[in-house]
Nucleic acid binder design. Structure first.
Lengths: 352, 352
DNA sequence: AACCGATATGGCATCGTTCCCACACGGGTC
DNA sequence: GACCCGTGTGGGAACGATGCCATATCGGTT
């Protein structure tokens, strides 16, 4: 015997139901329901007796039965791409806290970068009859699928269906432009961009911001300086090693997310390059390590927990107003200037 | 209109039920159930027809109804202390992946270091009738409560009820001993210990390991070098600043978790101390930043995702064998030697 | 011709909760 | 005394899926 069961005078392993409470309190099931939920009449003494009986038995209403009857659940699904990435972990933490404060239970699915997992999670959420879903989508499929089942979806961080599905994103374009402009104003012209892709809103907008800043600085995008890397540190590191070994290497790198930044940072360290004397680095998304390494890394900080919280808030509103206009919320970002960005080395000036 | 509803020929917002499928396929509900679940007879042509009808309607069985009828759910609850801490995030990721591979849905609760949230989560899990719960407990209450409701619990990382509840932990004692012995063998004798507490299994065991290693090296625990810090970076940093400013400061610090290590690390950097020339640092739990800062930080690495996965595996076994002996699984750790540990400075030798 | 087993399907009670409806009581009004 | 109201309670039908049991058909056996 390991776990003690049934502290109550019921059969072993049987959980008390509303019927048990009714019997113990000497009333009907209906009365117990009214007394405990507070909906409908119940005399004070009866209410009290029922509550005591419920507490004594350790009665907890069965959410399954309740949801089945009421046809609305108080749980929301959250799908993130990779919990091990602090960005998604923070986002989930923010969503979880907000959900809790609004009385929702969060069901979290970590797809671990697998498309299958994303679809499976969506189906599981339909099966669970969640009230709504918050997702950092990797394809338009999830939103379409859930939408066709009448489940409200909030796309967060990236958005595949603006205008149709609600979204919560950050100022990607502005953030990327500020970051790049910062480098331009330090004299850099050959600025590499490490980015995961340029098709989704996020990547596209960050690319746009980068491009605009270059244009404003009188430079243009050089295709060989734009690296579309895979979604992991190893690949980013490899690509960065290749690029930084070139004789005419860029004088600065803008890494469009924390994973890519880590790869670039590791490559720089391996090559023994000095930061920012040899090369400047700026990242989009301020991961914890960026303020711990030396030099510290200049980054576009986003309120990641706020992003998750805002998504849940939006979902809550959507549930209250199912037919309202769909809305995209844009959260502000801010450039945190640190040690990794400095003036363009004299030798490289004017060559770009 | 934002979300499209009811691609199927049903009423707006109505989700197809088994009855709709039965009607569409021209069979009874029982037959649909058998055809889709594969339990019981169903002629090949009928099975096919039913499956086609289900697919066409986008039918997804209602987990609520199924669970209500079967009285066993396929979801497990996971309670972690702080998703923003990479340790818990990795643990949750490991648990989630393992759960998914075994066909469970994970319901995650992040207590954010609040005791209330822990109890609320436990109650929510009872209400949800989860099959079992994996928890990094902060008090014995959760396990007792869930146990009294007949819900199997796996305590992970720390264990309040060994012998009663299953547990999955790491070799805290050995890890702490190895870490401390490493410092001792480098000549250190005045070794500070930063630890969150010394009462739970985790803290107690790490303290024991530290103490044993000192004894083996011919030194003893000096109470003023043992700091029981709060569970956040700021506090740890403050306490480290105080200690490292002392004239007879320790020559090495063993930080018993990644949060405390971060505080100590920041304090060291602020004071401009050289690592490891002035002070050596070793941490329990190898967080990502430890291999990125310079010098890199020597740490006791634990397989955090493995910890989460092992907990879910153990829970699965427990569900199959409810009355088996309760078991505590101990996972191995290994000391990763890096740049933050070096010989004890000559001046300090022999003063401890 | 009666019977059997195998194959295949439908009827129906059930899980725990909610909530509509019916009903019962006491007291006030006409 | 018939009525209606307000207050309080219980009966019972749902919600959607499952799975036991009854039933039906058919080929083969006794």
């Amino acid at each position: 015997m390991t776990t003690e069961r049934g502290a109550s005078p019921l059969g072993r392993g049987r959980r008390p139901t509303i019927k048990d409470v009714a019997q113990a309190a000497g009333v009907s099931r209906s009365t117990v329901s009214r007394a405990l939920t507070g909906r409908g009449y119940a005399a004070d003494d009866v209410r009290e007796r029922v509550q005591r009986a419920a507490a004594e038995l350790g009665y907890v209403p069965d959410v399954m039965a309740r949801t089945l009857k009421q046809q609305v659940s108080r749980s929301i699904g959250v799908i993130v791409s990779d919990l091990r990435n602090p960005f998604y972990a923070d986002l989930a933490a923010g969503a979880g806290a907000e959900a809790r404060s609004r009385g929702y239970t969060m069901v979290l699915a970590d797809t671990g970068l697998s498309a299958d997992a994303e679809n499976e999670a969506a189906e599981a959420f339909v099966a669970l009859r969640v009230a709504g879903v918050v997702v950092t989508p990797n394809s338009p499929k999830v939103s379409t699928y859930l939408g066709s089942h009448g489940i409200p979806v909030i796309e967060v961080d990236r958005q595949f269906a603006p205008g149709v599905t609600d979204g919560v994103v950050v100022g990607n374009r502005v953030g990327a432009r500020d970051a790049t402009t910062h480098l331009v104003s330090l004299g850099h012209r050959r600025i590499a961009l490490f980015i995961d892709e340029t098709n989704w809103t996020t990547g596209y907008e960050r690319y746009q911001g980068y491009s605009e800043a270059l244009a404003m600085g009188g430079a243009t995008v050089e295709p060989e300086l734009v690296v579309s890397s895979g979604w992991d540190v190893a690949d980013s590191r490899r690509r960065a090693l290749d690029m930084l070994r070139l004789p005419d290497r860029p004088t600065a790198v803008f890494a469009a997310n924390n994973v890519l930044a880590e790869g670039v940072w590791r490559a720089i360290a391996e090559l023994g390059l000095r930061v920012p004397a040899d090369v400047s680095l700026v990242a989009f998304d301020d991961a914890p390590w960026m303020s711990m390494v030396s030099p510290t890394v200049t980054a576009v900080a986003q309120d990641t927990m706020g992003l998750g919280a805002a998504a849940v808030r939006r979902l809550h509103e959507r549930l209250e107003t199912p037919d309202g206009e769909s809305l995209t919320t844009v959260l502000a970002v801010r450039l945190v200037t640190r040690g990794s960005t400095g003036p363009c080395p004299d030798g490289a000036r004017g060559t770009g």
